[in-house]
Design a protein around this nucleic acid. Sequence first.
DNA 1: TGTACATCAGTGAACGCGCGTTCACTGATGTAC
DNA 2: TGTACATCAGTGAACGCGCGTTCACTGATGTAC
Lengths: 209, 209
Amino acid sequence: VEEKTTIERRRSPRGEGERLRKEILAATQALLLETGDEDAVSIRAIAARVGVTPPSIYLHFADKDELIGAVCESVFADLGAQVEAEVAGIEDPLEALRQRGRAYVAYGVAHPEPYRVVFMTRHDHTREEFENAALPGMETFQSLVANVVACIEAGAIAPGDPFAVAIAMWAVVHGLTSLRIGSTQGMIDDDLTGYVIDTAIRGLAPERP
Amino acid sequence: VEEKTTIERRRSPRGEGERLRKEILAATQALLLETGDEDAVSIRAIAARVGVTPPSIYLHFADKDELIGAVCESVFADLGAQVEAEVAGIEDPLEALRQRGRAYVAYGVAHPEPYRVVFMTRHDHTREEFENAALPGMETFQSLVANVVACIEAGAIAPGDPFAVAIAMWAVVHGLTSLRIGSTQGMIDDDLTGYVIDTAIRGLAPERP
DNA sequence: TGTACATCAGTGAACGCGCGTTCACTGATGTAC
DNA sequence: TGTACATCAGTGAACGCGCGTTCACTGATGTAC
């Protein structure tokens, strides 16, 4: 019992063809969220969701890859913004690091399918694609490195290579996120997530005298 | 320039139809390794690889899901066996835990595509499928829990819920593995992997007096 | 020892399907004269 | 003020493709009498 969900649409007035572009992006992201994997999100399904015919997609995106790429970028940026928002105003850098980790996992758990597509599927990036797509992600990663540096300066974690420490933290939160949205659904809750993050951070503590 | 790789084949003698089953499993695993994702591995490609026609697959597997499921099981068991082999004979439980982590990541990095399919894609397991497929993985996880218990008993890590500690370790090594085979290829090497594992373990250490 | 027959491993051709993408088009809206 | 025309957002029909799966079959091998 499929429901025909083609929506009543007026065509965009003259200078505003860009409106459809945003609607396509939103519909793609929504379908990704609902159906689960990239291949299930077809050009035809996206078009139907927006209420438009398939060829219209090509008015705004060269091909499917470009569309999916654009969605990934937007998810990436969204994740970064969300995490920064959660962390803004926290003065203790160690507490900020902790909160950063929790916010990252929370975002992934709340948006499992975009997270999966962006971080868990293989992208055969060409160099330019990578440089464009990775920018938002790189900014977020740089914030993490800065947070680590602040922790080191405050004596809250042991001196060392901030990049290595940042990778360690990323591995932990990414691991938690993918376990939670993957095969072990339900085995890991927020408490256990917090415990794992705290434990990892404890491992970074300076040696006590 | 595609190469026709249909291999000269003799049909199996009378009671040995099972031989083809094993060949199909091996070919599927090999294709998974080479091409990268589950959808690229088609029944037709598997059949061609084995040197047989597509319908022959259905002599041994009810459908494609059953075939992929069987491959997952075998990868799962293989990972477990490999890790156990690396750890066998190590007496210090903390060192065993460390080595277990390294072996896990090493396996994943060496078999990225099977790892991806088993641990990083969504499986809509029915209950029975899960109970069958998860068995080898559960054994491996139980070994990890046992290792954690041994560490606690030896006073090498702080007393606490061994299940939570095991999840923490799993999140770390799974996170490392998926970062290494995913988008950040090349950013994380074996040294950094070892550092992250050691740091996580340090976080589990008992409070010093 | 010879022959009819059951069994078994595998084949060949075809099915219906949904996919990404292309191409010539339509018809409303704004602009030039 | 009126009309011819360019522009622009979007359409409708079709393309070729590879997929999972089915179905009636073939032909070699072993078995019963």
